[in-house]
Design a protein around this nucleic acid. Structure first.
Lengths: 235, 235, 235, 235
DNA sequence: TATGAATGAGTGTTCATTCAT
DNA sequence: GATGAATGAACACTCATTCAT
C-alpha cells in the first residue's frame, strides 16, 4: 500500500518548554515590531507552534505581552539584586541602582519601549502584577532615601516616593532618543550625572533650612542698611 | 460611480471659524476617548460639519491630533509666558515653571495623556512641529540653569538638558496616577517639593560642607564690615 | 481594541470546496454586476462564508477576479482542446477555433466583458498569469498559420501573430453588441464569415506579390494582346 | 487706509475660449492619468478656472471625457478626410484608412486608451454621439468594400460591416502593447501587413476552388493560346 | 493536547458635485 | 458669470480569537 506521510508533526513537549519557547518568540517579535504590529501567527510560527497553542497558555495577546514584560522585570531584579547589598554609602547605592537600570535599558530598549508606551498607559495598569513588580523594583530608591535620612546623611523632609519618581522620570526622559533608536547614551557618564544631581538634592542644608530667597531677602535688608549708612556719610 | 444628488445645507463660514470649531470638537473627543477610540464622524458631528470638511483642513486623523496638541502647547506657552519675566531668583523661576506645568496638566490631563502616550512614542516625533514646540517650551528650565550657573548661584558642572529631563521626567512620573484619572495631586505641595529637590541638587557644594554655609560666611563678613563702618561714623 | 467574543458556527470544509464555492459565487456576482459594483460581502454571503474567509484564499478583490478569469480560460481550453486535434484542413481548423471561441463568448458574455474591460486594460496585465493563459489559448491560430505556410497552403509571408490579432480582434469587435447585452449573434454564420475572410486572406497569391487585382488587370491586358496577335495570325 | 488686495482674479473670457481651455486641459490630464485617476480640481487648475466653472460648460466629469473623445474623432476625421478622395484603387484606399488610423493612434495613444477602455465599455455607449462619430469614421471601410464589390474587384458575399470589425479589431489588438506604453510599432509595415491580409480576404475566389487556381487556370489557358500562336509562328 | 480554518466587527478617506456668495 | 467651501455616501480589509476535529 501507499505509505501515507503523516500530516502533522505533533511534538509533545513539557508545558514549561512550550511556554518558554512562546515567551522567547513573543519577546523577539514584540521587541522588533512593537505590540500592535506583532502578529500572533508570527509569534506562533517562530515558536514552532500554531496559534491555538498559544491560547492554551496565555489568555490573549495582551496577556502574553504582560507576561513577557513581567519576566523582564524579574530578570532585571535578579540581575541587580545580588550586588546591591554589598554597596556602601548613599551616593554609591543610588549610583548602583541608576547604573543597573540604565544598563537594563541599554540591553533591551525594545522591551522598555513596550512597557513605557504600551503597558503603562493602560487604564488598568495599576491593578497589574507588572505594576507590583515595578513598585518592588523601584522601591530600593525610596529605601535608600529613607535610610539615608535615618542616618542623617540626607534631609528628612524629602518624600522618598518623589525621589523615586525623580530618578526614574529622569532616566526615562534622558534615554528617550536611545529608546527610539535615535542615538546612544554614555552609560557611565549618564549614571554619574544623574546620581550627582539627585544626591545633591538630598543633602541637608544649613539648619534653619530657609530656601535661598530668604537669604536674598536678608541681603536686601543688609543692602538697605548699607544704603542708610552711606546716606549718613554723604550728608 | 455616479455621485448621488442629495439636498444640502451649505453653511459657509470663514475658514478660521471652521478650523476652530473642528479643533475644539476634536480636542473634546480625543480628550474624552483617546485617539484610537475617537471617530472622525463623531468629531465632525460635534463640530457641526461632515467628515469631508475635516479633510479640507486636516490631512488625516493623525494630523488633526497633532494640530490639537500643538495648539495646546501654544496655549500653555502663552499662559505662562507673561509672568515669567517678572520672576526673580533661581528658586522662584524654577518654581514658576514647575507650577505652571503642573497647573496645565491639571487643567488638561486628557491632552497630556494624548501627547505622552500617542504622539511622543511616534517614530517620527522628533521631526515634528510638536517636538519643536516642546523644546521651546522646556527650554526655560535649561536657561534658568545656565543663567544660574553664570551668576554663580548654581554649580557650573551640571548639564542643563539633564535638569530639563529631570524636571519634566519627575513631573510626569509624579502625575501619572492623576493623568490616569486615578487620584488628584496637591498642586502647591507638588510644585514646592519638586522645586526644592531640583534646586537643592543644583546648588554648589562646599567640599565637605554645605554650599550655603559659604554664603552665610560671606554675609557675616559683610556684616562685620558694615558694622565697622557704622561704628566709625557713630564715634 | 478588544475583539468581541461572539457565538460562531464554524463549518469546516476542505479548502478545495471552499475555494470552489467562493469562485463560483464570485463568478456569479462579477458577471452580474461587473467588478466595481460587486461587493465582497455579497460574494461571501452567496458562498456561505464571511468576508474574512475569502481573504484566506485570495489576496484581495482584484486577485479574486483574476483567479475567476484564469479559471475561465482553463475551462475554455479544456472545452476546445479535445476536438481540435481531429480537425483536418486549414479552413476547418481555423473555423474550429473561431467557432469554439464564439461559443465560449456566447456562454459567458459577462466573463468576457470582465476580461476585456477590467483585466486586460490593467497596466500590469502583461506580467499576469492570465496573459500567459491568453497567449497559450490564442497560440493555436498562429500555429495553424505556421503549419499552413509550411504545407504550402498559406502564403509564407504572413505574420502568424498578425493573424492571431486579426482573428481575436475581429471576433471581439463583432460580438460587442452581444457582450453588451444589446443583441445576439448568429454563431454559425459569424464563425463561417470570419473564417472565410481570414482564410481568404491567407491563401497564396501569384509569385511576384503584386496585389491581386493588378495581376488580374495585367492578365486581362496580356490576354487582349495575345488575342490581338492571334487574330492577326488567324486572319 | 490699507489698500486691500483684490481677493479674486475674475477673468471674464468668451465661452468658446473657456471651453477650449478646459478641453485642452482635460485632454492632457485624462491622457496622462486615465479617467478615474484624473481629478476635476486638477483639470480646473490647469485650465486656469475653478471646479464650478467646468460645470457651467460640462454636465459632469463623464461628459467632459465624452466631449474630449468626440473632439478627437472629429480631429481624426478632419485629418484623414481631405486626402481620401484622391486615392484610387481598392488596396490603396484600404491602406489609406488603415494607415491614417494607425497614425492617429500613434499620435494619441492616451486618448485611444480612454475610448477603448473607458467609453466604449459603457453600457450606454451605443446611444452616444461618440458612437455615431465612430460609425461615421469607420464607415469608409464598409464603403470601400461595397464599392469594390460593385466594381467586381471584391467578392460580393462579404459583409462590409464584418470587414469593418476586422480592420478595426485587428488594428486594436495589434497596437495593444503600444497603447499600453509597452513598445512601439512600425507604422509603415503594420499598415501594409494589415492591408494585405484584409485585401486578400476580399478578393473573389473561383467558385468551388481556391482563388489562386483561377489565376493559374487563366494563366494556363493563356499559355495554351500563346503556345498555339507560337506554333503558328514557328510553322 | 494540538491543530488551523473560520469568524466578523469596525472606520478612515476620497472627490464629484452643488450652490450661497 | 465665477467662485470654492461644503457635502456625504460608500466599502475593502485585518487579525485576535474560537472550537470542531
Amino acid at each position: 500500500m501507499a505509505q501515507r506521510a503523516t500530516k502533522r508533526q505533533v511534538n509533545r513537549l513539557p508545558p514549561e518548554q512550550r511556554i518558554a519557547d512562546i515567551m522567547r518568540s513573543a519577546r523577539e517579535v514584540f521587541t522588533e515590531k512593537g505590540y500592535s504590529e506583532s502578529l500572533i501567527s508570527d509569534i506562533a510560527e517562530r515558536a514552532g507552534v500554531v496559534e491555538g497553542t498559544i491560547y492554551r497558555f496565555f489568555e490573549n495577546k495582551r496577556d502574553l505581552l504582560q507576561r513577557v514584560a513581567e519576566a523582564w522585570y524579574v530578570e532585571m531584579m535578579e540581575a541587580s539584586e545580588p550586588g546591591f547589598g554589598a554597596v556602601q554609602g548613599e551616593w554609591n547605592r543610588i549610583h548602583y541602582v541608576v547604573y543597573s537600570h540604565l544598563e537594563a535599558l541599554q540591553r533591551d530598549p525594545g522591551l522598555a519601549r513596550l512597557v513605557f508606551h504600551e503597558l503603562r498607559p493602560d487604564p488598568h495598569y495599576r491593578s497589574t502584577r507588572l505594576f507590583e513588580l515595578n513598585r518592588a523594583y523601584t522601591r530600593r530608591i525610596a529605601d535608600i532615601v529613607r535610610e539615608g535620612a535615618a542616618r542623617g546623611v540626607f534631609r528628612a523632609d524629602v518624600s522618598p516616593s518623589l525621589v523615586r519618581d525623580m530618578v526614574y522620570g529622569t532616566i526615562e526622559h534622558r534615554t528617550w532618543a536611545f529608546l527610539r533608536n535615535e542615538g546612544a547614551f554614555d552609560l557611565e557618564a549618564t549614571a554619574r550625572e544623574i546620581t550627582n544631581i539627585v544626591y545633591g538634592g538630598l543633602l541637608p542644608r544649613a539648619p534653619g533650612g530657609a530656601p535661598r530667597d530668604e537669604i536674598l531677602a536678608r541681603l536686601d535688608l543688609l543692602t538697605e542698611r548699607v544704603d542708610a549708612v552711606a546716606q549718613q556719610l554723604g550728608s
